[in-house]
Amino acid sequence: MKPFDYVRPGERSSAHEAARDGGRYVAGGTNLIDLMKLEVMTPDTLVDISRLDLDGIETVDGGLRIGATLTNSDLAADPRVRRDYPVLARALLAGASGQLRNKATTGGNLLQRTRCPYFYDTDTNCNKRTPGSGCAAIGGETRNHAVLGASEHCIALHPSDMAVALRALDATVEVEGPDGAPREIALPDLYRLPGATPHIETSLAPGDLITAVRLPAPSGDRQVYRKVRDRASYAFALLSVGAVLRMENGRIAQAALAFGGLAPQPWRDREVEALLTAETPSDALFEKAGEVLLAKADPPPGAAFKLPLTKRVLKAVLTEATQ
């Protein structure tokens, strides 16, 4: 690990200051410290925000306000989350291990880095790690790379389960700027597609601090999270689907669908949701949804299996959610 300075500010204003001057926030550290050991990330200063009292969870306007440093364990165990947002509890519980969930936080989970093996291997080229160096994944081992939203510069996936559920639940992110000014950004606006600058993953500026995630009241009572992976537990998704649906008189009144394991960010396609809305559930409808979702898919050779997998899993999830 490269040497670094460690600071633990007692208030947010000093945290902003330290981060604006090149420091990197740390809370749970489960991803960042690993990346520092491998020298994939080499911050000069670590700014410990784990004791800034950002770990609350409260009911606000019929929804929930989830503190940025609340652990994934506490969030998954919260009675309100288990009752009203089961898709979120399920997504959290499908991720990592008991030990990791006890440290991983809401904000850190959103900002975790890809698990693309070439990003982790400093002996290979990676545009995300070293801008302009090239992408060793393209033409390499691509079993778990993006089939949607990738670019000729980067085909890495976003690894989070939690973020997939949050995307389906229309979560927004509360951010405090370095001057202390708060703003709220919709989750899709937090993430950027790789394009020609895969090293720029979010719309956050230096010193910006995620303080909370906001969830509106759930838009549907039928919530499903299904994850497919190479082993039964403790593995990243090959594919995951988070679904939040509402039925009325046997028809789909509203559908929110988010996908993990497909793209550089939790993926959502309004065209697919529009196709399902006001329709009566049927196998043909669900198959059509899969085709529309993947119409623009461009999988690298190793990830071609994800196309039929996605269609089948989507059909199963929609069948379960509409029964």
Binding site: V26, T30, D48, L100
Partner: peptide
């Protein structure tokens, strides 16, 4: 009281 991976946590934290 909570289980964690001690390898992924800095002592100073």
């Amino acid at each position: 009281g909570r289980r964690i991976n001690a390898c992924l946590s800095l002592a100073v934290m």
